Simulated assay, not measured.
Amino acid sequence: MPPAPHPSPRLELRLHADASAPGRARRALERLPVGRAVREDLAIIVSELVTNGVMHGAGGAITLRARLGPTVRVEVWDDGPCFEPGPAAMPVGGVEGGRGLPLVAALALRWGVDGGRDGCTVWAEVGA
């Protein structure tokens, strides 16, 4: 009889919505069995998404989930209002902010937003 398949590696982490959350989220990614280039892309993506959760959430907890399969999917949930993603274009001139989602769009194979009455999940997938 063949051995039972191993479940895909997963990560779930609950974070306080404060300035330390992006760094804690990046450090948690070290547990995933992925290569250096993928980990670096994930670190940027997760940093941006968690920072957005801190800035735009209602101040409660933020949840980071990651699942490894044919792609690595990361999801960041916060208790703030959701939004419809628009074109991901970098701001020009001296505008401060607004670069996070264009970075996510540039690094991810695909990304999106799932909303509900209890908050917002922004997800992204990168090649494993």
Rank of each mutant, 00 (worst) to 15 (best):
W111P: 13
R10Y: 01
V92S: 15
G86R: 09
L42F: 02
R65K: 14
L109A: 08
G35M: 02
P81S: 14
P3E: 09
L101C: 05
P33A: 10
V34S: 05
V54H: 02
P87G: 09
R36C: 07
D114F: 00
E12Q: 12
R65F: 01
G35D: 11
H56L: 13
G69C: 06
P102F: 00
T71N: 12
T51F: 00
E48I: 01
A28S: 10
P87N: 04
V104Y: 00
P5F: 00
A17P: 12
E30V: 06
A105V: 04
G69M: 04
E84P: 11
R65L: 10
A66K: 06
D118V: 12
G112R: 06
G80Y: 06
H56V: 08
G119F: 08
L107Y: 01
H6A: 12
R117T: 13
V126G: 13
V72G: 12
S8P: 15
P3G: 07
P5S: 05
R14M: 05
A19M: 06
L15H: 05
E30I: 03
A61Q: 15
D79M: 09
E125F: 10
W77Y: 11
L64R: 11
M55P: 00
S8H: 06
G119D: 03
A66S: 08
P91R: 01
S20A: 15
R73T: 15
R26T: 13
E40N: 06
V46L: 06
G98T: 01
P91V: 01
S20C: 05
G98W: 00
P91L: 00
N52R: 13
R27C: 09
T121H: 07
V95M: 08
G97Q: 03
G115Q: 11
P9E: 04
V38G: 10
V50H: 04
G112Y: 00
P33H: 05
V126Q: 09
R26Y: 03
P3M: 02
P85W: 00
G116L: 03
V113W: 01
P87E: 14
R117S: 15
V54P: 06
V38C: 14
A19H: 10
A17C: 10
A21T: 10
V74S: 10
R31V: 14
E12C: 09
L49A: 10
D41F: 02
P7F: 00
P87S: 10
G53C: 07
T71R: 15
A17Q: 05
G94I: 03
A106G: 08
P87R: 14
S20Y: 04
P81N: 09
A124E: 04
H56M: 12
A89G: 07
G60H: 07
G53V: 07
W123R: 11
A19V: 14
G116D: 01
A43P: 08
W111V: 09
A105L: 02
R24C: 09
V126K: 12
D79A: 12
R117V: 14
R99K: 06
R65G: 13
G60Y: 05
R31N: 11
I62K: 07
G115V: 08
V76Q: 08
R26F: 03
D78I: 13
